[in-house]
Each structure stands twice: as structure tokens, then as C-alpha cells.
């Protein structure tokens, strides 16, 4: 969280009133996004997202065979650990980082426990009530320059799109309960239904009626009075929303914010899916992946 002087806040706020932002974007424009997949050779699926050359997030997925929960015997489990590296920003040192990590983790959990992703979780089931995949998704915030929710959900989704799981063979036992499984280390498959995964869109308001912006920089975030983060599914449904900030938003503004958030969410989903298609095709055909950027 950066502290801005009143004059700086006034500058951003007045700009927003005229529909101008300090980096020249329109209100609902997002910064250039860099998306790489399969960046970690040791993870089953991974992705790195950078927004505006500042916000930087790395996500890795590690699958494991476990027992499903009692309440949802036919569903797999997706668990999240978010860590805000104290190297990234002095704000992440100590409690500030822990609180933010918890908040980010909670949002992801909310998105991935909603009915929107039920089919995705079902595809992780191996034997109903006995065995399922548990996906440990570890996210690392390497640098923070605003819009963490958006970047994080985008990185998690991209990693889920490219994750590969070993094929599992169910060996029928003598009795119903004696089925055993064997993990085939040679053959891998992509995750079905990973298209269903939602992303989160944050819109922030500076307190003026009807004025709000998408993909805020950290300067813009620190003078926002209220913001709404909404999970958007590929069908345009809302699957978990939270508010932040103490300013409050009037009803008309909120209503149009939600509409724009859903619209923007669908656009981002569409753009990333088009972009990821090549990556996914490569993975399906087994072509070697040439690392770029960070780890090349």
C-alpha cells in the first residue's frame, strides 16, 4: 500500500472524472499482460502472469491422490496456498503479508468452491468416496503493482488449463470396496473442464458517482474509496464477489460496475483462451516446450 499525498489523490481523482488516467489508459482498459505457461519444470502445471511489467505472479500445481471429503464424495479437492514474498515489497514483511495472503487465498477458495466449478472438481474424482485428486496450487506474489486479485486468478486459471495428470487405472477388487488404483507414470492427460475455471475482475471507485476503473495501479488503488472484486465464469455468471474499502458505493454505480465487470471478465477469458490454445495444442501433441523469459 503506497501512501499518497492529498494532492496526488486529487490528481488521480480529477483525471478519473474526465475519463483520463495517468498512464493514458481509458477507464476500463487493462495494462498489457504477459502470460507464460509451463515455466516450472518440476510442477505438473504452472503459469506466470505479469501485468504492466510490475505485478508478477507465479503459480505451480502439484497433484496428489487423496481421499475426498465426506460432504462431497464425488468431487476432487483444490487447495490454495498464496504467499506474498517479502522480497517483493516492504509491505509484505510480517503481518501485512500474512493478512493479504489470507485474503487472496480466501477469494480463490470462494471462486473454486462455487457451483460454477463443480464439474471441474468432479473431473478430479477417481473412485467415488474413496480416491480423488487433490490439486495443491501454490501461488507466489513476486511483485505487486496493483490488481493482485485479477493477476492471481488469471495465473491460476492458466496453470489449470495446462496442468497434466498421470493416467490412473482402477483395478477392480473382489468386493466393491476393494478397488485399487495404479498410477501410470508414462501416460498423462490434460484436465477436463478446465475451461470452466473463472477469473476475478476488480473495479475500483474513487468516490465519485458513476466513475470507476479497471486494473488499477497501486497508486490508483491507494486512493480508491471502495472496490468490488467479482468472479466471472465463462458463462458470464458471478461466482463469488467481495467488496473492499470503506467508502461505500451507491446503487446505480454498483449495478453498472457489476455489468462492466462481467463484460470485462468475458473479454479477458476469451483473449486468454485464444492465447493459450497454442500452448495447449503443444502440450497435447507432446512437442517440447521451449522456455522463454524468466527461466530460459
Amino acid at each position: 500500500m503506497q501512501f499518497l499525498s492529498d494532492a496526488e489523490c486529487e490528481y488521480i481523482r480529477n483525471g478519473a472524472k474526465d475519463g483520463i488516467r495517468s498512464d493514458g489508459r481509458a477507464m476500463l482498459d487493462i495494462r498489457p499482460v504477459t502470460l507464460e505457461t509451463t515455466v516450472l519444470p518440476t510442477a505438473s502445471g504452472s503459469a506466470r502472469v505479469r501485468i504492466g511489467k510490475v505485478t508478477d505472479i507465479l503459480v505451480g500445481i502439484k497433484p496428489e491422490v487423496a481421499e475426498p471429503s465426506q460432504d462431497f464424495p464425488d468431487e476432487g479437492i483444490i487447495s490454495f496456498t498464496v504467499e506474498c514474498s517479502s522480497l517483493a515489497s516492504p509491505d509484505f514483511v510480517g503481518r501485512g503479508g500474512a493478512d493479504l495472503s489470507a485474503e487472496l487465498g480466501q477469494l480463490l477458495t470462494r471462486l473454486y468452491t462455487s457451483p460454477v466449478t463443480r464439474e471441474l472438481r468432479r473431473s478430479l474424482s477417481i473412485i467415488k468416496g474413496k480416491k480423488c485428486w487433490i490439486l495443491h496450487i501454490d501461488a507466489l506474489v513476486l511483485d505487486s503493482g496493483g490488481n493482485l486479485f485479477g493477476a492471481l486468478s488469471l495465473a491460476v486459471r492458466a496453470a489449470l488449463r495446462v496442468v497434466i495428470l498421470p493416467r490412473v487405472i482402477v483395478i477392480p477388487g473382489e468386493a466393491d470396496d476393494d478397488d485399487e488404483i495404479e498410477v501410470d507414470e508414462e501416460e498423462f492427460k490434460m484436465l477436463e473442464r478446465s475451461r470452466d475455471a473463472p477469473i476475478a475482475v476488480t473495479l475500483a471507485s474513487q468516490g465519485d458517482r458513476g466513475i470507476y476503473m479497471a486494473d488499477c495501479t497501486s497508486e490508483e488503488e491507494s486512493c480508491a474509496t471502495a472496490s468490488i472484486t467479482m468472479g466471472v465464469s465463462p458463462l458470464g455468471k458471478s461466482c463469488g464477489a467481495v467488496s473492499a474499502g470503506t467508502g461505500g458505493i451507491d446503487l446505480d454505480t454498483l449495478s453498472s460496475m457489476l455489468k462492466d465487470a462481467a463484460q470485462l471478465g468475458l473479454e479477458i477469458l476469451d483473449a486468454t483462451d485464444r492465447f493459450l490454445k497454442t500452448d495447449i495444442d503443444n502440450r497435447m501433441s507432446g512437442a517440447p516446450i521451449v522456455p522463454i523469459g524468466f527461466f530460459s
Binding site: 462455487s114 468490488i228 458471478s238 463469488g240 461505500g248 451507491d250 454498483l254 449495478s255 457489476l258
Partner: peptide
């Protein structure tokens, strides 16, 4: 008094139109 939404939380799955209606 100010007719403002100070806190918003949505769980589960809701259509956009339903969501806006629900807030109202």
C-alpha cells in the same frame, strides 16, 4: 441515509441480472 452499499459479498453462483436485482 447516504443510500450506499458499504459491504457486498456473494457466494455460490448467480446470474448477472439476478445479482443486480438481488442487490436492489
Amino acid at each position: 441515509q447516504r443510500a450506499k452499499v458499504t459491504d457486498l459479498m456473494q457466494n455460490g453462483e448467480v446470474d448477472l441480472e439476478q445479482f443486480r436485482e438481488a442487490i436492489k
